[in-house]
Simulated scan of single mutants.
Amino acid sequence: MQLVKKYEIQSKQKIIDFLNSQPAGRIASIDKDGYPQVIPMNFVYFNDAIYMHSHPFGEKLDNIRRNPSVGFEVDQHVCFLPSYYFHPTDASQADTLYISVVIKGRAEIVEDREEKAKALNALMEKYQKEGRYEALDAEMPVVEEVAIIKVIPSDMRGKYKIGQHWARPYRLKMAKNIIMREGLENAKPVLAIMGIKVASDGNLEIEQDPVM
């Protein structure tokens, strides 16, 4: 994936933090006819790999056994920016704020029960933060009943456009446009990603430059 430097996420830790903040990713494997098969999956980044749990039978598992080279992608749509933010009539000026990570790697179906249990516990920690469950161990039957897919990245790149390329006054101008279109409450999560805070008097304040 070719990236413009100003849009590339420079920090590996920020890539990992972004991955584990997102509810779903998409794994792409190659089917028996040579076509990409893209499947949305729950996942966790854990011990330098992507882990997913799956039904023990299915096409994606057959694909991985036949060809372990896969892609994995996660993205967050932050906000659509209509063309009239930038030009009165030119529709080509429309844009989008977003964050994305694309991984190329080697997939395998985990057989080791200890590793499977650790992966399942990491998934539970991500998705059920409130707890209220018994941690799994390798001897539990459920560990044998599910498949665990592991993707070991050979290349992992992140890209983001959340206003970091705008000068501060222009970013505040865009923030006001977003509030006018989306409403204040809907705009607040977008502004937070852009590093902008709504003060108690309603004014906008830049808390930090949104660098990843």
Rank of each mutant, 00 (worst) to 15 (best):
E8K: 12
E134W: 15
V78P: 13
I178D: 02
L81T: 02
I162T: 08
G183W: 03
V4S: 13
R181V: 10
A49D: 09
D137I: 07
H77Y: 11
N67H: 03
F57A: 12
Q37H: 12
V211R: 15
E134C: 04
I178K: 14
S154M: 09
K188V: 01
V110C: 02
I196D: 05
P88K: 10
I39M: 00
A49M: 04
P141E: 08
N203A: 04
M174Q: 13
D75W: 14
S154G: 14
S154E: 15
E182S: 10
Y160S: 09
D75P: 07
A192R: 15
A167R: 15
K118N: 05
E145F: 12
L61R: 04
P169Y: 09
D155H: 13
D90I: 08
H53V: 01
L123W: 08
V4M: 14
N177L: 15
K32E: 11
A28P: 05
Y84F: 12
F80G: 05
F43L: 00
T89K: 10
E185V: 03
M124S: 02
A167N: 14
P189R: 05
I30V: 12
L81C: 03
H55L: 13
D48L: 09
A192T: 07
P23A: 05
G71I: 06
D62M: 05
A138C: 10
R26W: 02
R168C: 10
E8R: 10
D48T: 11
N20K: 07
N67T: 01
F86E: 13
T96L: 13
L204E: 06
G105N: 10
I16N: 00
Y7Q: 11
I109C: 03
S83D: 11
S69N: 15
H53C: 07
M156C: 03
Y51Q: 07
L191K: 06
V142I: 14
M194C: 01
P189I: 03
S54Y: 02
N63L: 00
V151T: 07
V74I: 07
K118M: 00
K129S: 01
P189S: 06
V142K: 14
E205F: 06
E59W: 06
Y170H: 14
I162L: 02
I9E: 05
G105M: 07
I152D: 14
G183I: 00
Q76H: 08
R157M: 06
L204C: 07
K32C: 00
S83E: 11
Q128C: 05
Y7A: 08
A167I: 11
S100Y: 03
V146S: 08
P169R: 12
M1G: 13
G163K: 13
V74D: 00
L61F: 04
G34E: 04
Q93K: 15
A187L: 00
A119K: 12
Y127G: 03
N186E: 13
R181Q: 14
I50D: 01
R106C: 09
A147P: 06
Q2D: 14
K5Y: 11
K118H: 05
E8G: 07
Y85N: 04
A135P: 10
P141K: 03
A187E: 05
E114K: 10
I162Y: 04
L123Y: 06
K176N: 12
F86R: 09
A135T: 11
I99R: 13
P88Q: 12
A187S: 03
Y127A: 04
A107N: 05
S21E: 08
L61Q: 02
S83V: 05
